[in-house]
């Protein structure tokens, strides 16, 4: 009992210092906790990889599952002969072009439809119809039209991005609060002021949401076109490996895709944090 009372009294006597010490202790604790979490993660990955490595060739035929060492060896080969770099660049190029073109078109069309009521009323059912179509199903058609080179991939990717960005921009442009617009008009805002100072910034969060969604989907769009038919790219690498029963190559391509997707997602969340400070 007195052991408990002791520190409490000390607490009351020097609250600031005690609090500070408490905070330091908590920080220390949280650092230790984080360390435990990270260690567990590393151990988990090591266990899975170890089990995979050990099981491959003993429990299950490596033809189906390959093994971590073979995958690493394959990655090393690809890095050495330039395969990895060339295909990654091909995919990223398709992604970047598709994302840029699709998003730009999405913002422009979304904004126009969002602010011109007549157009919105006429076109909304068609937009919904086209949007409910799984866009990836169009990949074969686009390849027929635009070929297996960069063009077909860019069209596919931009279509996927277009709809994501368009939808959000459209919603954002319509979402602008009419009362807010009214009040700003009373302060003397003309059409241009309302657009620049109210409608665009208020849609911006929506547009960013669309863009954030579109980034990972641009990777999906590019890779799916490559898998369908193409002459280069990570999807192409994955498909040719699988088609030649090369599991090590398939896994290696997937590993590269995971890394690319991770890097992109981290970059997007960093960019988002910088942009919307006011949220």
């Amino acid at each position: 009992m007195s052991a408990i009372a002791g520190p409490m009294e000390a607490d009351a006597a020097v609250p600031a210092e005690a609090l500070e010490a408490d905070g330091r202790e908590r920080r220390l604790l949280s650092r230790r906790y984080r360390l435990v979490v990270i260690t567990t993660r590393v151990l988990l990955v090591a266990a899975v990889l170890g089990f995979w490595q050990a099981g491959s060739g003993t429990i299950i035929n490596p033809f189906w599952v390959s093994s971590p060492s073979r995958i690493v060896a394959r990655l090393a080969t690809w890095i050495g002969d330039g395969t990895l770099w060339a295909n990654t660049v091909a995919t990223l190029t398709a992604m970047a072009l598709g994302f840029t073109l699709g998003s730009l078109a999405g913002v422009i069309v979304g904004f126009t439809l969002g602010r011109v009521r007549f157009l919105a009323d006429v076109l909304t059912p068609f937009v919904i119809a086209v949007n409910s179509l799984p866009k990836l199903a169009l990949a074969p058609l686009f390849i027929l039209w635009f070929g297996i080179g960069l063009q077909g991939k860019v069209v596919m990717t931009s279509l996927v991005c277009f709809f994501l960005v368009f939808y959000n921009t459209f919603a954002g442009a319509r979402d602008t609060d009419d009362e807010l617009l009214g009040v700003v008009s009373l302060m003397g805002a003309g059409r241009r002021d309302r657009l620049i100072k109210v409608i665009i910034p208020s849609s911006a969060t929506w547009i960013f949401t669309g863009l954030r969604l579109a980034v990972p989907y641009s990777l999906v769009g590019a890779v799916v076109s490559e898998i369908t038919a193409s002459s280069e790219g990570l999807g192409h690498l994955l498909k040719t490996s699988a088609n030649t029963f090369d599991t090590a190559g398939s896994f290696a391509a997937i590993v590269v895709l995971v890394v690319v997707a991770l890097v992109i997602n981290i970059a997007v969340s960093k960019a988002e944090g910088l942009i919307s400070r006011w949220k």
Partner: peptide, 11 residues
């Protein structure tokens, strides 16, 4: 106009 809702620009 000081509206009932605050109608500030959040950004």
């Amino acid at each position: 106009y000081v509206t009932q809702k605050d109608n500030l620009l959040p950004w």
